[in-house]
């Protein structure tokens, strides 16, 4: 059973649309999807993370359909937004405690795990590293990253480990770095 299965998944509302996307992603596999428009990359990433519900087509995360069992989907998928987040050192531990509380993860373990990840992401700008660490605190089996920076591809792939990884891009060179 694929960890992420998308069949002609298409999203549209009055203002925006994205897709269709067809994709199978198993544990340990990774896919880098390139789109013409940044907004389309965001929409597909949100659909793959179970945050945006597909208007037509199918998205299954694990065995779950985000339209019906979005909470189960969000336990499996971790989402890293494209937008950097401005946090200082003091705010970082508060941020990790916040994420740990939302995902019901042991707070002490989350802080230790986050500190370890931070060391492994040395050299990566904090504004990009912190959301990634925050997503990994929830121990997702599928990591969905919206338009990550190509310059940090090595570190991101390293911390992602054997998780399934889907990255969306609006730049062919960046997509190549994550392929």
């Amino acid at each position: 059973m694929a960890l992420l299965r998308m069949r002609k998944a298409f999203f549209s509302n009055a203002a925006v649309s994205g897709g269709p996307v067809t994709l199978d992603l198993d544990g340990g596999e990774r896919a880098a999807l390139n789109f013409e428009r940044p907004l389309e990359a965001t929409i597909v990433a949100l659909m793959a993370a179970g945050i945006a519900k597909a208007s037509t087509g199918t998205v299954l995360i694990g065995d779950y359909d985000p339209r019906v069992q979005s909470v189960h989907c969000k336990r499996i998928a971790g989402f890293v937004p494209h937008e950097p987040v401005a946090l200082d050192d003091a705010a970082f531990s508060r941020y990790i405690a916040y994420r740990a509380a939302l995902w019901n993860v042991d707070a002490r373990w989350a802080q230790t795990h986050a500190a370890g990840l931070r060391e492994r992401l040395e050299g990566m700008h904090e504004a990009f590293a912190y959301p990634l660490i925050g997503a990994l605190v929830g121990m997702p089996r599928l990591l969905v990253i919206d338009r990550p920076q190509a310059a940090y591809a090595r570190q991101i792939l390293d911390v992602a480990g054997d998780r399934a990884l889907l990255s969306t891009h609006a730049n062919a060179t960046a997509a190549q770095a994550f392929a």
Binding site: A77, G78, P81, E83
Partner: peptide, 14 residues
């Protein structure tokens, strides 16, 4: 508050 919004939307909560 977009970052807080995204954290809440991606959290396993109804």
């Amino acid at each position: 508050h977009p970052h807080v919004d995204r954290c809440e939307q991606s959290a396993p909560l109804f």
